[in-house]
Amino acid sequence: MRYPDLLASVGHTPLVGLPRLSPTADVRLWAKLEDRNPTGSVKDRAALAMIERAEADGTLAPGATILEPTSGNTGISLAMVARQRGYHVICVMPENTSFERTQLLRMWGAEIVYSPAQGGSNEAVRVAKDLASRNPDWVMLYQYGNPANPQTHYDTTGPEILADLPEITHFVAGLGTTGTLMGVGRFLREHKPEVQIVAAEPRYGELVYGLRNLDEGFVPELYDESVLTSRYSVGPHDALMRTRQLLHEEGIFAGISTGAILHAALGLADRAAGSGQVADICFIVCDGGWKYLSTGAYEGSLEEAEQAISGQLWA
Protein backbone atom coordinates (compact mmCIF):
# COMPACT_ATOMS: atom_id res chain seq x y z
CA MET A 1 0.00 0.00 0.00
CA ARG A 2 1.24 3.50 -0.89
CA TYR A 3 0.44 6.67 1.11
CA PRO A 4 1.52 10.30 0.62
CA ASP A 5 2.95 10.45 4.15
CA LEU A 6 3.11 8.57 7.43
CA LEU A 7 -0.05 10.10 8.92
CA ALA A 8 -2.11 9.02 5.92
CA SER A 9 -1.11 5.44 6.72
CA VAL A 10 -2.78 5.43 10.17
CA GLY A 11 -5.40 2.66 10.29
CA HIS A 12 -6.03 0.15 7.47
CA THR A 13 -4.71 -2.57 9.78
CA PRO A 14 -4.86 -6.30 9.03
CA LEU A 15 -7.39 -8.69 10.54
CA VAL A 16 -5.83 -12.10 11.08
CA GLY A 17 -7.46 -15.40 12.02
CA LEU A 18 -6.28 -17.40 15.03
CA PRO A 19 -6.72 -21.03 13.91
CA ARG A 20 -4.89 -22.53 16.91
CA LEU A 21 -6.69 -20.55 19.61
CA SER A 22 -10.15 -20.84 18.03
CA PRO A 23 -11.99 -23.62 19.91
CA THR A 24 -13.88 -25.19 16.97
CA ALA A 25 -14.34 -24.73 13.23
CA ASP A 26 -17.59 -22.87 13.99
CA VAL A 27 -16.19 -20.56 16.65
CA ARG A 28 -13.44 -18.41 15.21
CA LEU A 29 -11.23 -15.74 16.75
CA TRP A 30 -9.91 -12.80 14.72
CA ALA A 31 -7.22 -10.33 15.81
CA LYS A 32 -7.28 -6.71 14.56
CA LEU A 33 -3.60 -5.80 14.56
CA GLU A 34 -3.59 -2.19 15.76
CA ASP A 35 0.10 -2.51 16.62
CA ARG A 36 0.68 -1.97 12.88
CA ASN A 37 0.05 1.75 13.27
CA PRO A 38 2.97 4.25 13.02
CA THR A 39 3.83 4.32 16.75
CA GLY A 40 2.72 0.73 17.27
CA SER A 41 -0.60 1.29 19.02
CA VAL A 42 -4.32 1.80 18.41
CA LYS A 43 -3.97 5.30 19.91
CA ASP A 44 -2.56 6.73 16.67
CA ARG A 45 -6.12 6.81 15.36
CA ALA A 46 -7.53 8.91 18.23
CA ALA A 47 -4.47 11.18 18.47
CA LEU A 48 -4.57 12.04 14.77
CA ALA A 49 -8.35 12.57 14.84
CA MET A 50 -8.24 14.82 17.92
CA ILE A 51 -5.47 16.97 16.45
CA GLU A 52 -7.17 17.26 13.07
CA ARG A 53 -10.46 18.26 14.66
CA ALA A 54 -8.72 20.87 16.83
CA GLU A 55 -6.95 22.24 13.75
CA ALA A 56 -10.22 22.39 11.83
CA ASP A 57 -12.12 24.24 14.56
CA GLY A 58 -9.25 26.64 15.24
CA THR A 59 -8.40 25.38 18.74
CA LEU A 60 -4.87 24.47 17.64
CA ALA A 61 -2.81 27.23 16.08
CA PRO A 62 0.69 26.71 14.66
CA GLY A 63 3.29 26.39 17.42
CA ALA A 64 0.69 25.58 20.10
CA THR A 65 1.40 23.47 23.18
CA ILE A 66 -0.70 20.34 23.63
CA LEU A 67 -1.21 19.01 27.18
CA GLU A 68 -2.57 15.50 27.80
CA PRO A 69 -3.00 13.11 30.72
CA THR A 70 -1.94 9.68 29.47
CA SER A 71 -0.59 6.37 30.72
CA GLY A 72 1.65 6.46 27.66
CA ASN A 73 0.26 5.28 24.34
CA THR A 74 -1.92 8.32 23.59
CA GLY A 75 0.95 10.61 24.53
CA ILE A 76 3.34 8.77 22.21
CA SER A 77 0.81 9.02 19.37
CA LEU A 78 0.18 12.73 20.00
CA ALA A 79 3.93 13.38 20.07
CA MET A 80 4.39 11.59 16.74
CA VAL A 81 1.64 13.63 15.04
CA ALA A 82 2.68 16.88 16.74
CA ARG A 83 6.27 16.50 15.59
CA GLN A 84 5.09 16.54 11.98
CA ARG A 85 2.53 19.30 12.47
CA GLY A 86 4.73 21.63 14.53
CA TYR A 87 3.22 21.47 18.03
CA HIS A 88 4.86 21.01 21.40
CA VAL A 89 3.51 18.16 23.58
CA ILE A 90 3.48 17.92 27.39
CA CYS A 91 2.26 14.60 28.78
CA VAL A 92 1.16 14.03 32.36
CA MET A 93 1.97 10.38 32.95
CA PRO A 94 1.81 8.25 36.12
CA GLU A 95 5.32 7.39 37.35
CA ASN A 96 4.45 3.66 37.50
CA THR A 97 4.57 3.09 33.74
CA SER A 98 7.17 1.15 31.78
CA PHE A 99 10.58 2.73 31.11
CA GLU A 100 10.06 2.36 27.37
CA ARG A 101 7.09 4.73 27.50
CA THR A 102 9.31 7.49 28.84
CA GLN A 103 11.98 6.70 26.25
CA LEU A 104 9.49 6.77 23.38
CA LEU A 105 7.83 10.00 24.51
CA ARG A 106 11.21 11.75 24.71
CA MET A 107 12.26 10.28 21.37
CA TRP A 108 9.32 11.96 19.66
CA GLY A 109 10.06 15.20 21.49
CA ALA A 110 7.42 15.23 24.23
CA GLU A 111 7.97 16.74 27.65
CA ILE A 112 6.86 14.57 30.59
CA VAL A 113 5.32 15.64 33.89
CA TYR A 114 5.07 12.63 36.21
CA SER A 115 2.06 12.15 38.45
CA PRO A 116 2.13 10.00 41.62
CA ALA A 117 1.82 6.21 41.21
CA GLN A 118 -0.86 6.01 43.85
CA GLY A 119 -4.18 6.65 42.18
CA GLY A 120 -2.88 5.74 38.69
CA SER A 121 -4.36 7.61 35.74
CA ASN A 122 -6.89 9.35 37.99
CA GLU A 123 -4.00 11.36 39.38
CA ALA A 124 -2.66 12.10 35.89
CA VAL A 125 -6.07 13.51 34.94
CA ARG A 126 -6.20 15.60 38.11
CA VAL A 127 -2.67 16.99 37.64
CA ALA A 128 -3.32 17.75 33.94
CA LYS A 129 -6.56 19.61 34.72
CA ASP A 130 -4.71 21.64 37.34
CA LEU A 131 -1.90 22.49 34.87
CA ALA A 132 -4.48 23.41 32.21
CA SER A 133 -6.24 25.82 34.54
CA ARG A 134 -2.93 27.58 35.28
CA ASN A 135 -1.84 27.65 31.61
CA PRO A 136 -4.89 28.77 29.66
CA ASP A 137 -2.99 28.98 26.37
CA TRP A 138 -2.16 25.26 26.41
CA VAL A 139 -4.57 22.99 24.55
CA MET A 140 -5.79 19.90 26.38
CA LEU A 141 -7.34 17.56 23.81
CA TYR A 142 -8.59 15.35 26.68
CA GLN A 143 -8.97 11.86 25.24
CA TYR A 144 -11.53 10.87 27.91
CA GLY A 145 -14.08 13.40 26.76
CA ASN A 146 -13.14 14.33 23.18
CA PRO A 147 -15.83 13.16 20.71
CA ALA A 148 -13.19 12.90 17.95
CA ASN A 149 -11.82 9.83 19.79
CA PRO A 150 -14.85 7.54 19.40
CA GLN A 151 -15.76 9.22 16.10
CA THR A 152 -12.58 8.04 14.39
CA HIS A 153 -13.32 4.47 15.47
CA TYR A 154 -16.87 4.89 14.16
CA ASP A 155 -15.49 6.25 10.88
CA THR A 156 -12.49 3.94 10.36
CA THR A 157 -11.96 0.99 12.74
CA GLY A 158 -15.59 -0.12 12.69
CA PRO A 159 -15.99 -0.05 8.89
CA GLU A 160 -12.62 -1.81 8.40
CA ILE A 161 -13.75 -4.64 10.70
CA LEU A 162 -17.18 -5.01 9.10
CA ALA A 163 -15.67 -5.04 5.59
CA ASP A 164 -13.20 -7.78 6.55
CA LEU A 165 -15.59 -9.77 8.75
CA PRO A 166 -19.22 -9.25 7.69
CA GLU A 167 -20.19 -12.35 9.72
CA ILE A 168 -18.93 -10.80 13.00
CA THR A 169 -20.90 -11.85 16.12
CA HIS A 170 -18.73 -10.40 18.92
CA PHE A 171 -16.38 -7.43 19.24
CA VAL A 172 -14.02 -7.31 22.22
CA ALA A 173 -11.74 -4.40 23.15
CA GLY A 174 -10.05 -2.84 26.15
CA LEU A 175 -11.82 -0.28 28.28
CA GLY A 176 -9.66 2.77 28.95
CA THR A 177 -10.95 6.03 27.52
CA THR A 178 -13.77 3.85 26.11
CA GLY A 179 -13.22 5.47 22.68
CA THR A 180 -12.61 2.24 20.74
CA LEU A 181 -15.60 0.43 22.27
CA MET A 182 -17.98 3.39 21.92
CA GLY A 183 -17.04 4.15 18.30
CA VAL A 184 -16.73 0.62 16.92
CA GLY A 185 -19.66 -0.52 19.09
CA ARG A 186 -22.04 2.12 17.75
CA PHE A 187 -21.01 1.50 14.16
CA LEU A 188 -21.36 -2.28 14.37
CA ARG A 189 -24.73 -2.10 16.15
CA GLU A 190 -26.14 0.07 13.36
CA HIS A 191 -25.16 -2.57 10.81
CA LYS A 192 -25.42 -5.77 12.85
CA PRO A 193 -27.97 -5.20 15.64
CA GLU A 194 -27.29 -8.62 17.18
CA VAL A 195 -23.55 -8.10 17.59
CA GLN A 196 -22.21 -8.34 21.14
CA ILE A 197 -19.92 -5.50 22.27
CA VAL A 198 -17.74 -6.67 25.13
CA ALA A 199 -15.32 -4.67 27.28
CA ALA A 200 -12.22 -6.09 28.96
CA GLU A 201 -11.05 -3.87 31.77
CA PRO A 202 -7.59 -4.31 33.26
CA ARG A 203 -7.55 -4.99 37.01
CA TYR A 204 -4.32 -3.53 38.38
CA GLY A 205 -2.52 -3.91 41.67
CA GLU A 206 -3.88 -2.18 44.75
CA LEU A 207 -1.66 0.87 44.42
CA VAL A 208 -3.62 2.06 41.40
CA TYR A 209 -6.91 1.97 43.35
CA GLY A 210 -5.37 3.85 46.26
CA LEU A 211 -7.75 6.81 46.15
CA ARG A 212 -8.28 8.97 49.19
CA ASN A 213 -12.04 8.65 48.88
CA LEU A 214 -14.55 7.12 46.52
CA ASP A 215 -15.59 10.50 45.15
CA GLU A 216 -12.18 10.61 43.44
CA GLY A 217 -13.31 7.73 41.23
CA PHE A 218 -13.36 8.38 37.51
CA VAL A 219 -15.70 7.43 34.69
CA PRO A 220 -14.71 8.87 31.29
CA GLU A 221 -17.19 11.41 29.93
CA LEU A 222 -17.27 9.37 26.69
CA TYR A 223 -18.57 6.23 28.42
CA ASP A 224 -22.10 5.15 27.50
CA GLU A 225 -22.97 1.89 29.22
CA SER A 226 -25.80 1.20 26.77
CA VAL A 227 -23.34 0.51 23.93
CA LEU A 228 -21.91 -2.51 25.76
CA THR A 229 -23.31 -6.03 26.14
CA SER A 230 -21.00 -6.98 29.01
CA ARG A 231 -17.87 -5.91 30.79
CA TYR A 232 -15.19 -8.11 32.36
CA SER A 233 -12.44 -7.28 34.81
CA VAL A 234 -9.20 -9.15 34.00
CA GLY A 235 -6.35 -9.40 36.47
CA PRO A 236 -2.62 -9.54 35.73
CA HIS A 237 -2.32 -13.34 35.99
CA ASP A 238 -4.90 -14.02 33.27
CA ALA A 239 -3.63 -11.12 31.14
CA LEU A 240 -0.02 -12.37 31.24
CA MET A 241 -1.03 -15.99 30.65
CA ARG A 242 -3.00 -15.02 27.51
CA THR A 243 -0.29 -12.64 26.28
CA ARG A 244 2.15 -15.56 26.33
CA GLN A 245 -0.40 -17.96 24.83
CA LEU A 246 -0.97 -15.56 21.92
CA LEU A 247 2.78 -15.43 21.34
CA HIS A 248 3.40 -19.16 21.66
CA GLU A 249 0.40 -20.47 19.74
CA GLU A 250 -0.20 -17.82 17.10
CA GLY A 251 3.13 -15.98 16.96
CA ILE A 252 1.63 -12.59 17.83
CA PHE A 253 3.87 -10.51 20.11
CA ALA A 254 1.39 -8.23 21.87
CA GLY A 255 1.34 -6.00 24.95
CA ILE A 256 -0.20 -7.09 28.23
CA SER A 257 -3.56 -5.33 27.81
CA THR A 258 -4.12 -7.42 24.68
CA GLY A 259 -3.77 -10.52 26.87
CA ALA A 260 -6.60 -9.21 29.04
CA ILE A 261 -8.77 -8.68 25.96
CA LEU A 262 -7.94 -12.15 24.62
CA HIS A 263 -8.91 -13.64 27.98
CA ALA A 264 -12.40 -12.14 27.68
CA ALA A 265 -12.61 -13.20 24.00
CA LEU A 266 -11.69 -16.80 24.83
CA GLY A 267 -14.34 -16.86 27.58
CA LEU A 268 -16.96 -15.84 24.99
CA ALA A 269 -15.57 -18.39 22.52
CA ASP A 270 -15.84 -21.22 25.03
CA ARG A 271 -19.39 -20.24 25.88
CA ALA A 272 -20.38 -20.13 22.20
CA ALA A 273 -18.71 -23.49 21.51
CA GLY A 274 -20.40 -25.04 24.56
CA SER A 275 -23.85 -24.00 23.38
CA GLY A 276 -23.24 -25.05 19.76
CA GLN A 277 -23.36 -21.50 18.35
CA VAL A 278 -21.52 -20.22 15.32
CA ALA A 279 -19.37 -17.26 16.32
CA ASP A 280 -16.85 -14.90 14.72
CA ILE A 281 -15.17 -12.99 17.52
CA CYS A 282 -13.02 -9.98 16.66
CA PHE A 283 -10.71 -8.49 19.28
CA ILE A 284 -8.26 -5.60 19.30
CA VAL A 285 -4.50 -6.06 19.57
CA CYS A 286 -3.86 -2.65 21.18
CA ASP A 287 -0.09 -2.61 20.89
CA GLY A 288 2.97 -4.82 20.48
CA GLY A 289 5.01 -6.19 23.35
CA TRP A 290 8.09 -4.09 22.63
CA LYS A 291 7.49 -1.38 25.17
CA TYR A 292 6.87 -3.90 27.97
CA LEU A 293 10.10 -5.91 27.58
CA SER A 294 11.72 -4.17 30.54
CA THR A 295 8.80 -5.08 32.82
CA GLY A 296 9.75 -8.78 32.80
CA ALA A 297 6.33 -9.78 31.45
CA TYR A 298 7.78 -12.24 28.95
CA GLU A 299 10.42 -13.90 31.13
CA GLY A 300 10.42 -16.49 33.91
CA SER A 301 7.33 -18.06 35.46
CA LEU A 302 3.92 -16.41 35.33
CA GLU A 303 4.17 -15.80 39.06
CA GLU A 304 7.48 -13.98 38.62
CA ALA A 305 6.05 -11.91 35.80
CA GLU A 306 2.96 -11.09 37.84
CA GLN A 307 5.17 -9.96 40.68
CA ALA A 308 7.26 -7.89 38.27
CA ILE A 309 4.29 -5.91 36.93
CA SER A 310 2.43 -5.50 40.23
CA GLY A 311 2.00 -1.81 40.93
CA GLN A 312 2.59 -0.97 37.24
CA LEU A 313 0.02 0.49 34.88
CA TRP A 314 0.37 -2.32 32.36
CA ALA A 315 -2.50 -1.43 30.06
Partner: peptide, 9 residues
Protein backbone atom coordinates in the same frame (compact mmCIF):
# COMPACT_ATOMS: atom_id res chain seq x y z
CA UNK B 1 -14.98 -7.97 43.87
CA UNK B 2 -15.66 -4.35 44.82
CA UNK B 3 -13.44 -1.71 43.20
CA UNK B 4 -13.48 2.07 42.76
CA UNK B 5 -13.84 3.22 39.14
CA UNK B 6 -10.47 4.42 37.82
CA UNK B 7 -9.22 5.91 34.56
CA UNK B 8 -7.43 3.94 31.84
CA UNK B 9 -6.00 5.25 28.56
Amino acid sequence: TILPAVAGG
